[in-house]
Design a protein around this nucleic acid. Structure first.
Lengths: 193, 193
DNA sequence: TTGCGGTGAGAACGATAGTTCTCTATGGTG
DNA sequence: CACCATAGAGAACTATCGTTCTCACCGCAA
């Protein structure tokens, strides 16, 4: 086995990704050095680089990981509320509100990452675009199941409302944009039925 | 007078702000060094620092300047379309579309700046929040003038739709989110009348 | 004419950070 | 037991960048 002071490959990987998530989300990608990740994860720089050969690779791994985690959480939150009898479209914005209320909320990590990306890092851009597509896809399933008469563009428009609400709530440090988005979404649903 | 090779204080200031706008918007704040601004503006580092004592000051001056410029452009674009008979709410999203179609479009400079801001630079945050408030204020005047029966939250919701459309169009490199936002906004207006 | 203030050009300084390298130790395998 | 791949600790290398400093120059006022 490994020495007591070192972690297995899996534990190290997990610890690195958890630390990367905390640090990158809280302080931004540029605001976090590899040494910070090393300190927080409790691994050596050597190990960090052996698992993620560059910072760009680490960021990509982090985004992929966060995509999985966040989508799972979002889907669960929406499902939970719908089961409790909340209107689907309200449940979607309710999940966003729940997220925005959590401590340390700093908006969407993916959008922040894109805004920070200075050079043309196509890999990161692609991950973010895929994340947004997956979000709209999920919203689309929920919404067109619940409101069959909704027009084609409704799921995409909800995606726009979600991203706008997330961004604005972070800018203003307020839940009001989410409430406004929720009102708008509900009004749209009412207009279809 | 100044020597031929040097610019007046005003010309230098103008040149610096124009260069800062191009560079910061195109490559992000962190991606631009003071030396880059110097080269592009054609002034010396000494002069650059005498007009803007730190990079943070320069960024603040740039954001203030861009706020003025952008708001003026936006208001004009909306007015122009309304005069041409375009529905006000369509005109608002039309202005966003016109912007997003312009070469070098990289989303909202203010939102990008916020996302990049790692430490708590309250000055920059405040400028961005003021910009968004001013945008919503303008939208509010236009919209509540044109649709008196619109509910209180409508202008704010339009602000959310605008920011979402801006962000998503930059992420996807597509005008589709703007069209979706426009459809949603028009449908909302129809539902009030 | 002689300083003085402001300027350009660019070197220099100090800090930070991505990445690699050295040295040492440890545990599994032949 | 000896060997080797791998790990930790941290120094070292290299590059970038914000900021300041040096030196030379020029126009203007006393």
């Amino acid at each position: 086995m490994s020495p007591a002071s070192t972690l297995s490959r899996e534990s190290a990987q997990e610890s690195i990704l958890r630390s990367a998530d905390q640090l990158f989300y809280e302080r931004g990608i540029a605001g976090v050095g590899m040494a910070d990740v090393r300190d927080s994860a409790g691994v050596s720089l050597r190990r960090l680089y052996s698992l993620h050969p560059s910072k760009s690779d680490l960021v990509a791994a982090w985004l992929e990981d966060r995509h999985q985690t966040w989508m799972r959480w979002f889907a669960d939150s929406v499902d939970r509320q719908v089961v409790d009898g909340v209107e689907p479209v309200r449940a979607i914005l309710g999940a966003i509100e729940e997220w925005a209320t959590s401590p340390g909320y700093r908006g969407c990590a993916f959008l922040n990452a894109i805004a920070e990306t200075t050079e043309i890092d196509d890999r990161h851009r692609a991950i973010v675009a895929d994340h947004k597509r997956a979000l709209i896809q999920h919203v689309s399933v929920v919404v067109h199941g619940a409101y069959p008469s909704a027009p084609e563009w409704f799921a995409s428009a909800l995606g726009v409302l979600i991203d706008g609400a997330v961004v604005d709530s972070a800018v203003f440090g307020s839940l009001a944009p989410i409430a406004d988005a929720s009102s708008a979404a509900s009004t749209l649903v009412d207009s279809f039925t």
